[in-house]
Amino acid sequence: MKKENEMMIEFDSRSCNEAFARVTVAAFLTQLNPTLEEVADVKTAVSEAVTNCIIHGYEEEVHKIKIECAIDEKQIRIIVSDGGKGIEDVKKAMEPLYTTKPDQDRSGMGFAFMEAFMDEVKVESGPGEGTKVTMWKTIG
């Protein structure tokens, strides 16, 4: 991917940063002149990925979450990564309604929403290896 513009942020895995993360990515996205719907789609996907890092990756302990964005022509690539506990079975984790935390009212729709609102989603993870979610979306 030839990158025309890139940005990177790193922040604490505190729930108050969920809004900060999605708004920051949305602000970076504005250079592609997205529609309101496209902005909402990206914000939802980023919110899901960051929430996963906080709840599942770090299990509410405070560590760092990294977001890397790259824009190439009309496409944005967003990488959300943590150094947390990782996912044992990525395929299972991505099944709609599957959640390891039903007691906390997690809906199991996080990855399903990322896949619904982005063009492509790739998840790389393993136990103790952290999790890296890469998402692509073409604007317009």
Binding site: R22, A40, K43, T44, S47, E48, T51, Q104, D105, R106, S107, G108, M109, G110, A112, F113
Partner: peptide, 13 residues
């Protein structure tokens, strides 16, 4: 104006 899957969990729970 904004909701993610946490809202789904709230309603279904």
């Amino acid at each position: 104006t904004f909701m993610d899957s946490s809202g789904i969990g709230l309603l279904m729970g």
